[in-house]
């Protein structure tokens, strides 16, 4: 669906490269999370695909068509939800969507527009000016706008920034639905739970370079091995009481709470050792491995 090969971008001569020799391929039907810190280059990459930024080097193919050779044919295949919310405020919600359909060559698209308005709960705002919508509604309108021409590839640049939790989950369901119907999706986000919940694959960009490109499950298995174990005790304990746990990065939180970092397959060992030492605890908590922790490991350089 998408083939990116050795793409670089330098905004100005002498400036550092916003993207450095990026290559990856996205297969039809994949749901890819594109992660990275502020300024990593995510939006730059997306803007290259949207035609807003001219790449300095490399080739991009969308649906097998080379962007440099036949840009217009690629446009119909892509829908982009940009990071910044922006509308032509002269127009109503309905006009925004009908114009958007028109630009993509669709004369009568009202059926699908109504369907989108319905799924994104905007039907009763149909005739309102786009200016009068709340932030979350604008975000949804932006998504509807990217979808009117039924793109094969949907690219979302932080679509849930500033969207309330209820609505966010509604959006997740919506994206899942689209994904099931076969739309290829690339999602940029700073909410890692989002990527964890939705995507099959994770690409992390750091300072314009891809540092991780991995199947989500594999990634979590390989990197997320450390689980946080937390024990509460009914009496004060000291270091010497837990000397036998020294291998598991023990850390005290006050005198009655102990945290350990344990590999998945060592959890049993820890419990066995505590039983052997006759150390009884009153409470116990296990923090499951999260993509967020893995991600922090990666961007903090531990994943090299």
């Amino acid at each position: 669906m998408l083939e990116i090969k050795n793409v670089s971008k330098q905004y100005k001569k002498g400036a550092i490269d916003a993207l450095k020799d990026i290559s990856f391929t996205v297969k039809k039907g994949e749901f890819v999370a594109l992660l990275g810190q502020n300024g990593a280059g995510k939006s730059t990459l997306i803007n290259i695909l949207a035609g807003n930024v001219k790449k300095s080097k490399g080739t991009v193919k969308i649906g097998g068509i080379d962007l440099d050779k036949n840009e217009l044919d690629t446009k119909k295949k892509v829908g982009v939800v940009h990071q910044e919310i922006s509308f032509d405020y002269v127009f109503s919600v309905d006009e925004v969507l009908r114009n958007q359909s028109g630009y993509f060559g669709l004369k009568d698209n009202n059926g699908y527009i109504n369907e989108l308005l319905e799924t994104l709960s905007l039907t009763d705002k149909k005739n309102d000016s786009s200016r009068s919508l709340s932030g979350g509604m604008k975000r949804r309108l932006l998504i509807a706008k990217a979808l009117v021409h039924r793109p094969d590839l949907l690219i979302l640049d932080e679509p849930t920034a500033g969207v309330d939790i209820g609505l966010r989950h509604q959006l997740y369901d919506f994206l899942n639905e689209l994904h099931k119907k076969g739309t290829t999706i690339i999602l940029t986000t700073h909410y890692l739970e989002e990527a964890e919940k939705l995507c099959d694959r994770v690409i992390v960009i750091d300072q314009g370079k891809i540092v991780v490109d991995e199947n989500k499950k594999v990634l979590m298995k390989n990197l997320g091995a450390e689980t946080l174990l937390e024990f509460d005790f009914s009496k004060d304990i000291e270091i010497k009481d837990i000397a036998f746990l020294a291998d598991f990065n023990p850390r005290f939180e006050g005198k009655r709470r102990l945290q350990l970092k344990v590999l998945q397959n060592e959890i049993g060992v820890v419990f066995q050792k505590m039983a052997d030492a006759d150390l009884s605890f009153s409470g116990f908590n296990l923090e499951p491995k999260k993509l967020e922790n893995i991600y922090l490991q990666i961007v903090n350089g531990k994943a090299a």
Binding site: A50, G51, N52, L72, D73, K75, K76, V78, V80, E84, S86, F87, D88, Y89, Y103, F104, G105
Partner: peptide
């Protein structure tokens, strides 16, 4: 006006010559 609204760039995504 579209520069102000940040909508001018949208035109880059349309399949128009």
């Amino acid at each position: 006006a579209q520069k102000y609204q940040d909508t001018l760039r949208d035109i880059n995504s349309y399949p128009l010559t």
